[in-house]
């Protein structure tokens, strides 16, 4: 009997663990190993250099510059995305006018829900190229719109100006993510009991009050997850940055992921690049842990 159970468990456990070991654990372990070498990535030869790569990291101004941009993203991207996502989701689900039907979303909510989700359907590469063309100085939609409404003075060479390039990329990150969180929060709100909203309505709560006092506490678990996901995204941001601005002009929109990529693939310094990767790994891990800790709250029981 016991043997049958073992066989059952082993049969189901071994394949996924093997896959996890090969494709997740082993690359991580190797990255740690490589980060202690001077491996150049083109031959099997390398030497162990101990912590030299990490020492070099401490003095690397380009790394710190990139990290600073990630920090700004980390501070802003989750907050702005979640606030926008919550506001839009509330409008779609409970933001409609008060009438006899009770609590419902604004008119056309199903259409909006689909439209908001569009960016999520596009691949990152498409989003990047799309926005790069939209920011184009003479032929792009952004400047075209500004000029069409007579705001010629505000038309800028967006990605060519270090004052704007980083924010341009940040907007793309925001745009490409808000939709997903609108849908996520909408789904979560669907499962909330309507009578709570109806009660709030009867008590005369406005939209803002309902959002802050009712929706947010009830959705806290979902928000927490969203927060961690967005934080991880903010520490990464590689794909969008590489396609839209490639970190430029100069290093004005550089991020750690891009630094890692260029160090490995353009400069053939896989050892040092792995050290950047290892630093990023611990950074992401501690940020995620810190977020979960700080946002821990008493659960509000619904219904």
């Amino acid at each position: 009997m016991a043997r049958g159970r073992w066989l059952f468990i082993v049969t189901f456990l071994v394949p996924p663990l093997l896959l996890y070991g090969v494709f997740v654990v082993s690359p991580y372990a190797q990255a740690f190993q490589i980060s202690a070498t001077d491996w150049g990535g083109l031959s099997p030869e390398y030497e162990f250099v101990g912590l030299d790569n990490f020492r070099r990291l401490l003095d690397d101004g380009y790394f710190w510059n990139a990290l600073r941009h990630n920090a700004v993203l980390l501070a802003l991207l989750p907050v702005v995305t979640i606030v926008l996502g919550l506001v839009l989701a509330s409008m779609l689900n409970v933001g409609g006018r008060r009438d006899r039907v009770g609590v419902h979303g604004v008119r056309g909510a199903p259409v909006y829900r689909i439209v908001y989700f569009f960016p999520q359907v596009l691949s990152v590469a498409v989003i990047g190229v799309l926005w790069k063309e939209m920011y184009a100085p003479n032929t792009g939609v952004v400047n075209g719109t500004l000029r069409a409404v007579g705001l010629d003075g505000l038309a800028k060479p967006w990605l060519g100006d270090p004052r704007f390039a980083f924010w341009c990329v940040a907007v793309v990150l925001l745009w490409s993510n808000v939709g997903f969180y609108v849908v996520l929060f909408s789904a979560a709100m669907q499962s909330l009991p309507r009578d709570i909203y109806e009660a709030a309505l009867l008590d005369g709560a406005g939209r803002v009050t309902t959002l802050v006092r009712v929706t947010v506490p009830l959705l806290w678990d979902t928000i927490q997850v969203a927060w961690v996901y967005l934080a991880i995204l903010a520490i990464d941001g590689f794909a969008v940055v590489q396609i839209v601005s490639d970190g430029g002009p100069g290093y004005a929109s550089d991020v750690v992921g891009l630094r890692l990529y260029k160090t490995a693939f353009n400069e053939s310094q896989f050892g040092y690049a792995s050290a950047i990767g290892v630093a990023m790994f611990f950074l992401t891990l501690s940020v995620a842990a810190a977020f979960l800790r700080v946002t821990r709250r008493e659960k509000v029981e619904a219904g």
Partner: peptide, 25 residues
């Protein structure tokens, strides 16, 4: 079947995977 037994199996599987995974270098 104990919890510890299960962990041992899991651990062995992971280590085996690492060995099978080969080395990027």
């Amino acid at each position: 079947l104990t919890r510890r037994g299960l962990m041992t199996v899991a651990g062995a599987g992971t280590v085996g995977g690492t060995l099978l995974g080969g080395c990027a270098m």
